[in-house]
Computed example of a mutant assay.
Amino acid sequence: MKIAVFSARPYDRRFLDEANQHADAAHSFEFLYFDASLDIHTAALAQDCEAVCVFVNDRLDAPVLHALHALGVRAILLRCAGFNNVDLATAADLGFFVARVPAYSPEAVAEHALALVMTLNRQTHRAYNRVREGNFMLDGLLGRTLYGKTVGIVGTGKIGLATARIFKGMGCTVLGHDPYPSPAFESIGESVPLDELLARADIVSLHCPLTPDTHHLINDVSLAGMKAGAMLVNTSRGGLVDTQAVIRALKSRHLGHLAIDVYEQESVLFFQDRSGEIIDDDTFQRLMTFPNVLVTGHQGFFTVEALQEISGITLRNLGDFATGNTCPNLVTAA
């Protein structure tokens, strides 16, 4: 069976090939790797393939799904937990097998959230550059002791729980909000309504999926309800945050710090080398002018362990498609 792998980077090739080599003969597949992301213009690359393997910024709207179906593609394998980039209703109408990787090393993302907080709070990224230039002055590098601070976790699934455990271990008071509360969170922190969490937390960390209900969860109103000077961290999906509202909150000095590993318009920026080009996204460029903003390029998942797990689960999902077995990771339209 041939599988077209879109948005394939060297690390995708390495870990998928390793997982494929360790699979039994009945579950060994031929991967065709493409650097290009999947959209209506690149769908033809999946010619003669029975499945496509895609990532967070690949586009699987109705026109793309119809094009893939016409080529003979019958399965969509997501190398991620999120599936907001897939038109699930159309996929169901066309009979596509759609499977995801529901959880992979939640600690990887949780640890990255901590790294963002620690870096931005203690200005270690700026200190690194100063020392390399022979500047050992401390002015402008003043941080806050995290011990005793209040951290709000929005979304208490596996990643949110892992993040909550880390901050509790650092001596923080942990608040949580989730429309579907996790019983496991009750031993870590206090579950509260979202408006209370925003008002009390010194750090707000987002760990929820992007759905119509959570789109722009962070907006002018919710930002106004946050404690003055608080830090906002997003390692989930860019669409959770209204970027223009965040810029307004930064300009007014109400939002103290912003750390993001995701961005609403990241599909034209992230996972690419744009260092020799002019970036036309004025909103992103405006964000980068703030000294209290830290941006990383969707690397929260990027550990050896997470990539091994992603590849292994993807291979198992493919095996279920090939054999007709029940797949525990199917994604269906609501």
Score class of each variant (00 low, 15 high):
234 N>A: 03
280 D>V: 12
254 H>L: 03
230 A>P: 03
202 D>H: 06
238 G>A: 02
210 L>I: 07
232 L>E: 01
268 V>I: 13
231 M>P: 13
271 F>L: 13
240 L>Y: 05
258 L>P: 01
278 I>K: 13
236 S>K: 02
224 A>T: 07
228 A>N: 11
199 A>L: 14
223 L>F: 11
257 H>D: 14
264 E>V: 12
222 S>E: 07
205 S>V: 00
201 A>M: 01
234 N>Y: 02
269 L>I: 14
202 D>M: 01
189 G>W: 12
270 F>D: 04
245 A>I: 05
195 D>C: 04
189 G>T: 07
227 K>R: 14
252 S>P: 10
258 L>Y: 06
232 L>C: 07
201 A>L: 01
213 D>V: 09
192 V>A: 06
228 A>S: 12
208 C>S: 15
280 D>C: 10
242 D>I: 06
209 P>M: 08
205 S>L: 00
216 H>A: 13
273 D>G: 09
233 V>C: 00
239 G>M: 01
204 V>G: 01
190 E>S: 09
218 I>D: 04
248 R>E: 05
207 H>I: 00
264 E>C: 14
219 N>D: 13
202 D>C: 00
269 L>V: 13
192 V>K: 03
236 S>M: 04
228 A>M: 10
248 R>W: 08
241 V>F: 00
214 T>I: 10
200 R>E: 14
271 F>E: 12
259 A>L: 06
262 V>E: 00
